[in-house]
Amino acid sequence: MPAPALEPDAIVAPSPARPDDPIVLSSLTHDYGSRLALDHLSFSVAPAQIFGLLGPNGSGKTTLFRILSTLMVPSGGIATIRGFNVAKEPAQVRQQTGIVFQARSLDIKLTVEENLRHAGHLYGLSGKHLRARIADVLERVALIDRRKDYVETLSGGMQRRVELAKGLIHSPAVLLLDEPTTGLDPGARLDLWQYLRMLRDQEGVTVLVTTHMMEEAEYCDRLAILSEGKLVALGSPDELKSTIGGDVVLFETETEHAAQSLAARMAGRFEVSPTVLGNTVRLERENGHRFLTAVLDAFSGEVRAVSVSRPRLEDVFIQRTGHRFWTEATDGSAKEKEGID
């Protein structure tokens, strides 16, 4: 695999955690035997934010999710949720946190209401109070009229909303969601994000979402991008994209070899430092369209296709790691047990 373009530590200067930050990681590390799944992660999540954990499969986000949801004890470092250590004070952490797992967790043989009642009982709610909460959360996810229906009769999008309602039953301050839109159609996906924003704005809930989808990461207030267990970028989507100077220019050639040769000559002639990704030469440049014309004039016969675009989050990933978002998942041994898109 290509060496990282820059040392990640040099780019990501973690801002110091503030006392009211609901999620704080400091030097959090986890290994599965010989493989390091999380490598000294340090960052914090401010209250009432939608915080995205973006990374390809195998980047460590599922490992981090398991640790934050108290299902696994990290091998090193500390993670706290609302001041409680997830490894040492799981009971307090669980009380503060709502969790929506990627896989369905509803009992399909029970009704929507029964599922929520059981969930409420597990979080110390009961009686009149619980009934009021059930009505409240179902109202929120617009499923109040389906409360007597068996879960197996609901559509995938509706089931996800019940999952969300279940995670919210005890009014948690922090909501953790693992790839919440997996398997949803675009409409249901947008709905779900709408609900998350509403929770943030109206109830001040801090939402942490893992995702491997760039488009979804754009919706987050702030993002941590992970690659191979390391934090490679931290900031709002706009901040991250603005770290890329100017436009992203791509030249596609016939072969990888041709791309390397083109990149070398381009570097000599224009004083740029392009990256080669397969058969494509990539670089960041102010006034990309002018540069493009200059390159095409100089090397016209070698380029098969060109593009100039405003930086996207994927460009941030490429810039920080030196490789494409999806390439690392091809290493079978590094594959984590994560949902494949």
Binding site: S15, P47, Q49, Y123, G124, S126, H170, S171, Q202, G204
Partner: peptide, 25 residues
């Protein structure tokens, strides 16, 4: 991030007791 934090509504936690033994069982 500071701007978001200052304008954010405060989370109103409902008081939930630690669940006992009998109701969850």
């Amino acid at each position: 991030m500071a701007t978001v934090a200052t304008t954010a509504p405060h989370h109103q936690a409902i008081r939930t007791a630690r669940p006992g033994l009998w109701i969850p069982s």
